[in-house]
């Protein structure tokens, strides 16, 4: 029964991968080598698609790998398998938090955790920024400093920043508007 087996494999991935979608990759690789359902090269291609489609990357990966293993029901079963442990664990924590929200120690724990959480998100943003802004074909000190930076990306970054923070007429627009705008700019100017 492949669907049951698929559910179980992804349930384990969802249970043991801690820290988001990227953390599931080593588990998926291990499933591929152990079961022979897909190759390492296929996994790399699936990752490329998961990163270039709408939807959180980790969920896209689960659906794609499941589909590769066992068609449309496979994609569904794998995704449900991967999210089931999260749902159970978070429901328990959330119920606990509701009961102890006003507890002095719980408040103190969150007082310390919040700036850490903000810093982790900032670090993730800086990681993406490095990938977008630095040219992979240039090295320092071989190239001049201004050659290290992708100027087209830097310009787009500046434009989007101004549109979302300075210009009164566009500041309140939905984030999706800027995403679509940037996609069009990317296609037109060959990013």
């Amino acid at each position: 029964m492949i669907y049951l087996q698929l559910f179980w494999e992804f349930f384990k991935t969802g249970l043991f991968a801690i820290g988001g979608g990227m953390a599931t990759i080593p588990f998926l690789r291990e499933i591929g080598t152990r079961t022979g359902w897909f190759t390492e090269a296929a996994l790399a291609n699936m990752l490329a698609v998961a990163e270039s489609t709408p939807g959180p990357m980790g969920i896209n990966m689960a659906t794609y790998v499941g589909y590769t293993c066992a068609g449309i029901p496979g994609g569904l079963v794998a995704t449900l398998g991967e999210i089931t442990p999260s749902i159970i664990v978070i429901l328990i924590i959330a119920a606990f938090l509701q009961a102890f929200r006003k507890n002095k120690y719980v408040e103190q724990v969150f007082y310390g955790m919040r700036p850490a959480s903000t810093a982790l998100i900032a670090a993730a943003g800086i990681g993406v920024l490095q990938i977008c802004m630095l040219r992979s074909d240039a090295r320092w000190p071989g190239n001049a400093l201004w050659e290290l930076v992708d100027l087209k990306s830097l310009l787009l970054l500046a434009v989007v920043w101004v549109l979302t923070n300075v210009v009164k007429q566009t500041k309140g627009w939905h984030p999706l508007a800027f995403i679509v705008f940037s996609a069009v700019v990317g296609i037109v100017f060959q990013f």
């Binding site: 270039s52 970054l157 940037s182 996609a183 990317g186 296609i187 100017f189 990013f191």
Partner: peptide
């Protein structure tokens, strides 16, 4: 190309 642009925006 579209996703290279989108990544900048997401930053």
């Amino acid at each position: 190309h579209a996703f290279a642009g989108i990544r900048v925006c997401v930053c």
